[in-house]
Amino acid sequence: MAAGGDHGSPDSYRSPLASRYASPEMCFVFSDRYKFRTWRQLWLWLAEAEQTLGLPITDEQIQEMKSNLENIDFKMAAEEEKRLRHDVMAHVHTFGHCCPKAAGIIHLGATSCYVGDNTDLIILRNALDLLLPKLARVISRLADFAKERASLPTLGFTHFQPAQLTTVGKRCCLWIQDLCMDLQNLKRVRDDLRFRGVKGTTGTQASFLQLFEGDDHKVEQLDKMVTEKAGFKRAFIITGQTYTRKVDIEVLSVLASLGASVHKICTDIRLLANLKEMEEPFEKQQIGSSAMPYKRNPMRSERCCSLARHLMTLVMDPLQTASVQWFERTLDDSANRRICLAEAFLTADTILNTLQNISEGLVVYPKVIERRIRQELPFMATENIIMAMVKAGGSRQDCHEKIRVLSQQAASVVKQEGGDNDLIERIQVDAYFSPIHSQLDHLLDPSSFTGRASQQVQRFLEEEVYPLLKPYESVMKVKAELCL
């Protein structure tokens, strides 16, 4: 049975990233139509530049190519590739079939990587351009969430054990800070992308030097003109047959890092959902379990974690691919890159769409948070109580021993009897502590235990987050809708 299948058929496997999760716009960027249309555009740009620099290419040939950029006979191309065992030459023939007058000058002087690699770089750039505003929107939604809850005390956790208090907004800023680093890295790697350009079979530009009869300047002009037509500021000066596969490492490393950030955020949300302090959106008709109707599973956060793990592992592909590119190139890269580049971007696209949807509907339960604080705060307040007693004339050592005994009794009630923490009640009825009984409410005010959390939130948002989001103001209103 021949390899390949009808990918629109229910009898043929289709990647869930495309069929179930990723956005239509990201799927289109990695589609065959987008790819092969870009090949034709690159052939047109090459012909236009070659004509401008004096090669015998007519206006009629150029116009014929322009008129057929979208006229792609995919069936013919597939048949040609089956016959020739070469995808680029299959599309040269297919393009030439609908451009008979231009057929002889299509791909003039070029090698397969002229269309293959340059198209990949265009796709990487455009895919990054799709991700950047999506990530900015996630940051914006979380920034709104953090600002609104900047002063809401909550129990902090280290080692997932109760620690000092923080605020809900401050905790959210930990998430935002990681995503801001990801946004900066995505922008950097996007701006650092260079075009492969017009380089020939081993990167020496020998074929173009021959076409222009040894004119170095025209060869350099050709490279520059096509690079500018493709919208790049610069091209690699040095290439082998391909652009260095280190570029793929750079791009997928940034995406993998984004995956790590999203995994951490969504894990926190899942843990908070278990504590009943916070939940992701839950639709009115949504079913959490087929057997347990009360369940409210954090399905979206779980999906993000599941896909983020996949995204983090994909960076190993370009690392290994770059390491086995012998001399000017081997074909070890080809099949692998067809999979890992598309999957990385479709996965990143999915987790950003999902995280935006989550961040637009996060639900906080202040009463649950308050109750958990009441359970733990008495123990945390013991040092403040000791200091207040010393100020009232008591002995630190005597007070410490009193607190120690009462704390152990209260802990026994919590752990052995399943009761509430009654340390404060014990202190309130103990005559030894009568000098500070009137101060206990103040000493137990949760806001006095959150330090500068709310001020940190305000400063972080104003100095770091809002300036970073400013270039994306025009796209901030787009909502994230999930079908599944």
Results as ranks from 00 to 15, higher is better:
residue 122 I to K: 06
residue 473 E to D: 14
residue 212 F to T: 05
residue 203 G to Y: 05
residue 89 M to S: 06
residue 268 D to T: 07
residue 156 G to Q: 02
residue 14 R to V: 11
residue 452 R to T: 14
residue 370 E to C: 08
residue 109 G to V: 00
residue 391 K to T: 15
residue 366 P to I: 14
residue 75 K to N: 13
residue 11 D to M: 12
residue 208 F to L: 13
residue 101 K to Y: 11
residue 383 E to P: 02
residue 351 I to N: 05
residue 17 L to S: 13
residue 168 V to R: 01
residue 253 S to C: 13
residue 447 S to A: 13
residue 220 E to C: 08
residue 182 D to I: 07
residue 351 I to H: 03
residue 441 D to H: 10
residue 135 L to F: 14
residue 60 E to S: 13
residue 74 F to A: 11
residue 335 A to K: 04
residue 74 F to S: 13
residue 365 Y to R: 13
residue 428 Q to P: 00
residue 72 I to S: 07
residue 40 R to P: 02
residue 337 R to P: 04
residue 9 S to D: 09
residue 267 T to L: 11
residue 324 V to E: 08
residue 207 S to G: 13
residue 116 G to P: 00
residue 297 N to K: 01
residue 302 E to P: 00
residue 419 G to F: 08
residue 424 I to L: 13
residue 186 L to M: 13
residue 245 R to F: 00
residue 67 S to Y: 11
residue 152 L to G: 01
residue 328 E to N: 04
residue 97 H to T: 12
residue 195 F to V: 04
residue 321 T to C: 12
residue 202 T to M: 07
residue 58 T to M: 11
residue 2 A to V: 04
residue 124 L to H: 08
residue 242 T to E: 06
residue 461 L to E: 01
residue 131 L to Q: 11
residue 475 V to G: 15
residue 431 A to V: 10
residue 152 L to M: 11
residue 93 H to L: 08
residue 420 D to V: 08
residue 280 E to A: 05
residue 165 L to R: 04
residue 283 E to G: 13
residue 327 F to I: 06
residue 415 K to G: 04
residue 330 T to M: 04
residue 100 P to H: 07
residue 478 V to W: 15
residue 84 L to Y: 10
residue 328 E to T: 03
residue 133 P to M: 13
residue 395 S to I: 00
residue 259 G to S: 09
residue 278 M to Y: 04
residue 366 P to E: 14
residue 362 L to C: 08
residue 474 S to L: 14
residue 217 H to E: 10
residue 164 Q to W: 04
residue 368 V to C: 07
residue 4 G to R: 13
residue 109 G to A: 06
residue 63 Q to F: 13
residue 215 D to W: 07
residue 138 V to G: 07
residue 434 S to C: 06
residue 290 S to D: 04
residue 29 V to W: 04
residue 477 K to S: 10
residue 304 C to D: 04
residue 252 L to F: 08
residue 197 G to R: 01
residue 464 E to M: 05
residue 143 A to T: 09
residue 180 C to P: 00
residue 432 Y to F: 14
residue 128 L to V: 11
residue 31 S to K: 05
residue 371 R to W: 05
residue 259 G to C: 10
residue 129 D to F: 11
residue 193 L to F: 13
residue 77 A to M: 15
residue 56 P to T: 12
residue 171 R to L: 01
residue 71 N to P: 10
residue 3 A to G: 10
residue 160 F to I: 01
residue 428 Q to F: 13
residue 103 A to N: 11
residue 351 I to W: 03
residue 81 E to L: 01
residue 150 A to W: 05
residue 315 V to T: 09
residue 132 L to C: 14
residue 78 A to W: 10
residue 4 G to H: 15
residue 314 L to F: 13
residue 105 I to G: 07
residue 292 M to R: 02
residue 198 V to M: 15
residue 141 R to I: 15
residue 204 T to S: 14
residue 159 H to D: 00
residue 38 T to K: 11
residue 88 V to A: 09
residue 272 L to Y: 10
residue 197 G to L: 01
